[in-house]
Design a protein around this nucleic acid. Structure first.
Lengths: 116, 116
DNA sequence: ATTATAAGACACCGTATGGTGTCGTGTCAA
DNA sequence: TTGACACGACACCATACGGTGTCTTATAAT
């Protein structure tokens, strides 16, 4: 019952480079109509519209009609899930932290201090 | 000429839930053979092997043969790209920060203070 | 009133993806 | 040495995906 109506996996939504570019463009412009977004790509309007639909299903984009154009804006909050996910693994790419976590694990498993 | 030999997009590699589950399993176990990983899923060995191949192409996994089994281990460092990417957008999902950035933008665009 | 623009809806298409099953081979165990 | 096991390499298949083009409708401009 939260704000985010994501019927689509956020990981999936950001997997496509075109969609990441859309996110980038929307982050720079507050609100943009479809035709203006389309102008930034080599593909046709329909394709861009489909990508935006995917982003919308993931809750990453909001749209509203203004006159004859549909304007899109970014809603970045679902990206928090990505950040949380990747934050969990950040401890694995620092050698020092890896050593530290191993030490902690060994202490947990062998509380009698049996280091080899 | 760096360490990471990623011939595949990391965003793409982590888009699949099965592959994220593989990453999770490997993060908990240091090194695991294919058959042991396969036992954690409902799909067959070939499918799991393919997912691991994708992770390998993204540089997220290393493998070595030991006897008749192929053991896999996690290499999380390519995930740094994800973290960097998402960190850029973290400023967009705090309401306070959004308001602040809007204020700054309005000041830049209309330095005469013409608010409607 | 007419014309141009913006976009939704839809049909269509080639290819990538995610799964299957099978066969052959190296390795470990009895 | 025989058999079971772990795996790679294929061939195969259904469906999802990322694109196209066309038609129609609502809106804006002239």
């Amino acid at each position: 019952m939260n704000e985010n109506n994501q019927s689509r996996d956020v990981f999936d939504a950001i997997a496509d480079p075109t969609r990441r570019q859309l996110i980038r463009l929307l982050s720079e412009a507050e609100e943009l109509p479809l035709h203006e977004l389309t102008a930034q790509f080599e593909m046709g309007r329909t394709a861009v519209s489909k990508h935006l639909a995917v982003l919308k299903e993931a809750g990453l984009v909001l749209d509203r009609r203004v006159g004859r154009e549909t304007r899109f804006r970014l809603n970045a909050s679902p990206l928090r899930e990505i950040q949380d996910w990747v934050a969990f693994y950040s401890k694995f790419w620092s050698e020092n932290l890896v050593r530290l976590s191993r030490l902690l694990e060994e202490e947990e498993e062998e509380p009698n201090g049996g280091l080899e």
